[in-house]
Amino acid sequence: MELFGDPAVWLPFTFAALMGLSILIYVVLDGFDLGVGVLFPFAEPAERDRMIASIGPFWDANETWLVLAIGILLVAFPSAHGAILTALYLPVAVMLIGLILRGVAFEFRAKAPLTQKRAWDGAFYAGSLMTSLAQGFMLGLYIMGLEQSWATYGFAILTAVFLTVGYSFIGATWLILKTESALQRKAVDWAKGGIWGLVLGLGAISAASPLVSPRIFDKWFSMPEFLYLAPFPILSGLLVLGLWRGLQRLPAEGDKGAWQPFAGSIALFTLAFLGLAYSFYPYVVPEKLTIYEAASAPESLIIILVGTCFVLPAILAYTALAYVIFRGKATELSYD
């Protein structure tokens, strides 16, 4: 395995890339189904069934990307896993309880007596909201270098709100893609109302992370990096503009362009994520622990990597299969 150079260098890098990929896929996929949950109170009870139907076959697999991401952190960078999660003890607990509530409410609302359905709808909303807020809070605290003070908490609360609005935005774009008529028109309005959260969130994070760390500032604002990186903000800006204009035209005749907002928000999330990854590399615990210092033994990483090479393509293939099988507008869900 010396083929690619020193395994203590390329293995941690590979695993950091894999972890990044999992987090990105998670944020996009669970982002839209969490967003659908956050939008629940704005919908009529009848519409809620259709919203649930649009995410029903996917949410479980979507959440599995979180397990994979946290699993890679756990197995490839064990000391970082401990350092990050003990620092985020409380938001993690809030997120876990949120995930529990929404996951089970999903099932209970369809099976419990009808009189309880509203209560489970409430649990689904509350769980989705808790999860989104907690994830945004963790993101903010991570950007602040996991420092615990009132100022960093303040920033984390801001990112919590922005990420939640961002999730509801991508959730709304998913609904535009998956629903029709009245609900689709509502979803367009929700997306128009939610795009500001994304813009403010991106702005706040872009402004704050270089200010917190001189190292990140130098990575972005020194020549010639500044020029190479210019496409990031430019592309993001163009995407936001395109999304905004696209939303004005929806819903269109023959459902034309209903996929565009969702595709646009995936692109925007991806750009934002790449920017963050660039800022923090090579650190896994900001300014404290690099991926190279935190990595597990090469012989353990190799055995995971070999399996990953076989299994990850299969996972991607059958995930794609599920999205193909359940393509098109969401219909009523029933157990057959």
Binding site: T308, L312, I315
Partner: peptide
């Protein structure tokens, strides 16, 4: 680590 990773993946 590898045992848990294989559980998630397989």
């Amino acid at each position: 680590g590898p045992l848990l990773a294989y559980e998630v993946m397989t």
